[in-house]
Amino acid sequence: MDSTTPWLVNMAKNVITVRNVSKSFGKVQAVRNLSFQVESGTCFGLLGPNGAGKTTMMKMIYAKCTREKDSDDTLEIFGYDPIHEELAIKYLSGVVPQENNLDEELNVVQNLMIYSKFYSLSAKVARERIDNLLGFLELSEKRRSKIKELSGGMKRRLVVARALLNEPKLLILDEPTTGLDPQVRHLIWDKLRQLRSQGTTILLTTHYMEEAFQLCDTVLIMHKGEKVMQDTPQNLLKENIETFVLELPAGDLARTIRGEGLPSQIRVERFEGTTRLYCDSFDELKAVTTRIEGSQYYLRQSNLEDVFLKATGRALNDKQ
């Protein structure tokens, strides 16, 4: 590709620019005034419960879904608006949809060959890339296998390989590892990190907090179509939640503990029978556990899931 192609010029910093973008399906507003930017070469995660609007936002980016046109909204990918230039965007991007949609009638290599035509790759280039990609995703031994013979993890890796056929500058993944076993999940994470280090920009949706934490430079938490918060995973943790959590599964333990009063720096949250005590100091929480010696409790470092539950308002805050 020559250096005068517009995406190179436009790419400068942000690969994706989303400003005031909305989308409704009938009366349901799936995405509401969403704004964010994805910098070139970074991994950006859309995080949220089912129905938060993550997939809709993604589909608007590759024109599978059309946004509600508004006078002051902006949606640009490599400087292209999906409403007018969907082909340019799709040519520069690879998409891993939520569902594996492989051609069951064909084998592994044939599935990829068909897609190489969509990018007008010559047969020679296509064969080379397919060999490399199957190697990269550890599927070389399965090249002649039928799709039915593949495990869920292999199918997922094949869909990722398919998305990489045209050496995309932007890789879009909708829940890349949902339903996969830990080995495959770590393998896919590893490959995604390699791609990012080679300069590929990655946009992914997930509801696995660990996935977001492992991969993303920036995480945007969505709830009911809106942005709740956005930051690096580390900052989200640091600024939104105390460092440690004490989880008490049984209600009577919570009563025992609270009966004796709690230091003011401990925040208490109760949700469906489980009580959680948050505090920046490990020692404070440890001291509290002496009151329930011998009972079941779980004292751990807080994680992105705690932030997420707090942000999306699942838990009832006891102080409210």
Binding site: Y62, K64, E99, N101, F118, Y119, V159
Partner: peptide
Amino acid sequence: FEKVYDGMLAAPIT
């Protein structure tokens, strides 16, 4: 059923 079109439409075709 197969959602074949969803995959194809992610490639550069309208």
